[in-house]
Each structure stands twice: as structure tokens, then as C-alpha cells.
Amino acid sequence: MRVGICDDDSKWYQKAKGIIEAYGKKVDIKIDVLYFSQGENLEVYEGAPLEAIFMDVDLGEESGIALAGKINKKWKSCQIIYLTNYLSYATETYHTAHTFFVLKEQFQDRIGEVFGKILHTIEQKSENLVFSAIGGKEVVLAPEDILYFERSGRITRIVTVWGNYEIWDKLGSVMEKLSKMDFVRCHNSYIVYMPAVRELGKGCFILKNGTKIMISRSHTKAVKTAFMRWAMTQML
């Protein structure tokens, strides 16, 4: 993941970079942080795509809000997170598309919320899922209609709020279609939709409908990391 910090205060940049990198290590996400000391540097940037820009509202002689408006038009998928020392700027920022507004003094305490929203926004851009059911019928499902996938023998069963469907696809192929924020592989035989989970128990997920889905030892660490990421998005 690649993000940028646009701020004319180099000391704050170093502090913010440290906070972001520490968060990345905590949740096992590699985050590359680029620095732009002024708007002009950001406007002429031609490197790899940036998932997000942490934008200072006041860039000295420049307006971070005006610059964000340009970024909205130039890189439509790049999210803007406003960082400022002044709450009074909050209403002005709503003239631009942005993901979060946070005071610099609160940045470290709210880093989980901020990245939870960034990651969730990225993952939620996926469209409806299309599967070829056994028998030749095409099944179109919204992610929120799915409870879990279960592999049994050579067949994968999709358990949804509308009923069950059977497909030939292996779970590895299924995971390639799914949002990594909302779905997690918890067992060689199961993929679970996180919003359908009521709680993470000892060795299993307990779904809101009472169903228990086993978590294998080999998937335990990845499941805990994925569950923490998803839980952070629910704090917003």
C-alpha cells in the first residue's frame, strides 16, 4: 500500500510517518509513505498510484483544500484524509471529496479508525459477485447476502440469506473474487463473511444466526489479523 503526506512541516511529516508505519506493522500491512513538502510536488507526481493522501489544510501560501479538489479530479481513486491543527477548517473541507478529517493531536489515537475507513473504502468498490452454479445457471450475489462458503469434496456450497447454491470453484479461486476486508479464509473448508459474524470464539466464528464455523490452527493468526482490521471499520 502506498500513501502520501503533503505538509510543509517536515517535523510533523516524520512524526506522522512513524505513526503510519507503526500501524502498518501492527496489522501486518506494508505501507510505503511518500513526502510532498508542497502542493507543486504532489501535482507533478508521476510515480506508482497513491491509495491515499494525508493533506494538511494549511500549506503556508497554499490551500490544502484547493489542492485536494485538484487531486479529486486528477486521481479519482486516491482518498483524501485531512490533517490539521484547527477544527474550524472542518466545514470548508466538505467542498471536496474526502475520507476523513482528523486533528493532528488526535492522529495517533485515531489511526486505526482512519486506516479502517481507507481500507474499507478500497475494498467496498467491488461489484456484485457472479458464480456459475452447478447445472449451468449463473448466480449473481451481493456480498452482503452471503454468510459463508463451505467446501465439501469437489463441491463448494454458497450459503446465503436467500438459500444455498453449489459451484465447482475451489475456495482459493473463490477468494480471488472477494473483498479481503469483508471475507476471510478461516479453514481449508470455509470462507466467512465478516459482517455475518456475531463473535470470534475460541477456535470458531459464531455467526449472527447461531451457526458455528471452525477456525483451523493454520489460519488462526491470519483470522485474528483480519478480524481486527474489520472490527476497526465498525468503530467509525
Rank of each mutant, 00 (worst) to 15 (best):
S126Q: 05
K117V: 01
A133H: 12
D109A: 05
Q108I: 01
E138Y: 14
L129M: 09
S132K: 15
K137E: 10
E123T: 05
F107P: 11
Q124L: 01
G116I: 02
L129S: 10
G116S: 02
I118L: 01
I111H: 03
V140T: 15
Q124P: 00
F115E: 01
I134A: 13
L129V: 09
L141S: 04
H120R: 09
K117M: 01
I111K: 03
K137I: 11
G116A: 07
R110E: 07
G136P: 09
G116E: 02
I118M: 05
T121L: 11
K125D: 09
H120P: 03
G135A: 05
G136D: 07
V130H: 14
G135H: 02
E127F: 07
K125M: 04
P143R: 04
K125A: 06
V139D: 07
K125V: 06
E138S: 13
K117Y: 00
I122T: 10
G136E: 08
F115K: 05
G136M: 11
S132W: 10
Q124T: 14
E138M: 15
F131P: 15
E113H: 13
P143G: 04
H120F: 01
R110L: 00
N128W: 09
L129N: 10
A142P: 12
G136Y: 08
S126K: 08
D145T: 08
K125G: 14
G135Q: 08
H120S: 10
V130Q: 15
A142R: 15
A133S: 15
H120V: 04
L119P: 04
S132G: 14
L141Y: 08
P143Q: 03
V139Y: 10
F131V: 15
E113G: 10
R110C: 03
E123Y: 09
Q108E: 10
R110A: 02
K125R: 08
F107D: 08
E144A: 01
I122S: 11
E144G: 06
G136I: 13
F115Q: 00
I122N: 10
L141V: 01
Q124W: 07
F115H: 04
I118V: 00
I122P: 07
G135F: 08
E123P: 00
G112M: 02
K137A: 15
K117C: 06
I122E: 13
E113Q: 13
V130S: 15
S126G: 12
L141N: 05
I146M: 02
V130I: 15
V114Y: 05
I111F: 04
E138A: 11
L141P: 04
V139F: 11
I146V: 08
S132H: 13
K117Q: 07
G112F: 11
L129C: 11
V114D: 03
G112I: 10
E144N: 05
D145N: 05
R110W: 00
V130W: 12
G116T: 02
G135I: 06
H120Q: 12
I134N: 14
V114N: 03
G136Q: 12
E127T: 07
L141M: 09
R110S: 03
P143V: 00
G112N: 12
F131H: 14
A142Q: 14
N128P: 11
E144F: 06
E113Y: 12
